[in-house]
Amino acid sequence: MRIVVDDALFDPGAELNRFTEAAEGMGAVVSFSGIVRQNAAGTLKAMEIEHYPGMTEKAIAAIAEEAVTRWNLGDALVIHRYGALEPGAPIMMVATSAPHRADAFAAAEFLMDYLKSRAPFWKKETTSEGEGWVAAKDEDEAALDRW
C-alpha cells in the first residue's frame, strides 16, 4: 500500500505502469485520476488545496486499510496533491489491484467516495470573479451510505 500526500506534480500514466508492473499474480488493475476541472464559463484560474498535515496521511491510511479488509486486493495506491493547482492539472489518483476485477472496481470506488468526504482536504477556487471555498455536496456524503 502506498500513500502519497505531496504538492509535487505526478504523472498518472507512469504511476499506473509502475503499479501494474508490481501487481504480479493479479488479474485486474483499476485506476482513477482526478484532474482540476475548468468551469463551464472557462473562468477558473487556480485551485488551492489545503490539507491537515498528519491527519490527512492517517485518514487516508485508515480508509485504505478498510478497503484491504473488505475486498480481496493485492495492493492499493493513493496519491493526493495539495497547494496551488491549475486547470487540467492532476489532483489525485487511486489504483487497486486484485485477482478479479469486481474487487478492484469496488475498492477503487470505495476509496474515492471516502477520500471525498473523510480525508481532510479543502478546495478553494480562484476565478476571474474572485475566490471562494468549494462547498461539500450532500450527494458526496450520501454516497458513503452504500458502503
Binding site: 489525485m92 477520500l115 468526504s117 480525508a119 481532510p120 482536504f121
Partner: peptide
Amino acid sequence: VAFFPPMTGG
C-alpha cells in the same frame, strides 16, 4: 483540537 468545514477531497 481542530475545527474545519466539511471536507472536499478527491
